[in-house]
């Protein structure tokens, strides 16, 4: 009973916050209304005992929205993001698309013959989720993921070796006049 009430409340919060994204006139409020909507969805996933996916949804979405707020407000031209502005455009097209997607998903949810549960949930759902996603590819994933991660970080470091404000770790000052352009490479500036 309590679970059902909680589920309904969370569902309503998710939808209401989703509507608020388009009804508000502030970019900051729209961003965090979207974050609130996702947090409600994450909490619903927690209700399904999908602990890991639920908590990670909350983590990722809040982080993503915080970053999105930076970029949206930073790159909005002459900064209308700091002023009240409409959050909708292309109303007719987006109404059609949204309505169509809703109908397809709702029809799918209602018309698909859902299978009955076979077996019982695993004792540790996080482990079985990892097994299901990775399975026999675990070794490959374990090798590739640190490599990908190291590539990301080192690409960033290489792309901007001196940083925006000062070199770190301290690089020798570039020799300006006496040495020719062929000596510039070692300061890390690159050509």
């Amino acid at each position: 009973m309590l679970t059902t009430v909680l589920f309904i409340v969370l569902a309503l919060v998710a939808v209401a916050a989703g509507i608020a994204v388009f009804r508000t006139d502030s970019m900051a409020r729209a961003t965090y209304a979207l974050a609130a909507s996702f947090v409600a969805v994450g909490a619903m996933l927690l209700q399904f005992n999908l602990d890991y996916i639920g908590v990670v949804t909350i983590l990722m979405m809040v982080m993503e929205m915080a970053i999105m707020a930076i970029f949206m407000i930073m790159f909005m031209g002459m900064n209308p993001a700091l002023m009240p502005m409409s959050m909708v455009h292309n109303k007719r097209g987006s109404l059609l698309i949204a309505g169509g997607v809703f109908l397809v998903l709702a029809a799918g949810a209602l018309l698909v013959p859902w299978p009955a549960r076979r077996g019982a949930p695993a004792p540790d759902l996080t482990v079985s989720l990892g097994e299901a996603i990775m399975g026999n590819k675990m070794l490959v994933m374990l090798t590739v993921s640190p490599l990908l991660f190291a590539t990301l970080v080192s690409a960033l470091v290489l792309a901007n070796p001196r940083g925006r404000y000062r070199p770190y770790p301290k690089l020798p000052a570039p020799k300006q006049s006496e040495s020719g352009p062929e000596h510039h490479g070692h300061t890390g500036g690159g050509h």
Binding site: A28, Y32, A35, D51, Y52, V55, V56, I58, L59, V62, M63, M65, A66, A69, D124, L125, T126
Partner: peptide
């Protein structure tokens, strides 16, 4: 005694990104 308590802690400290900015 959440099975993913550590991730919960992490999610909550990410909440601070949003809250301090707000």
């Amino acid at each position: 005694d959440l099975p993913v308590g550590l991730v919960w802690f992490n999610a909550m400290d990410v909440m601070l990104w949003a809250l301090v900015w707000m």
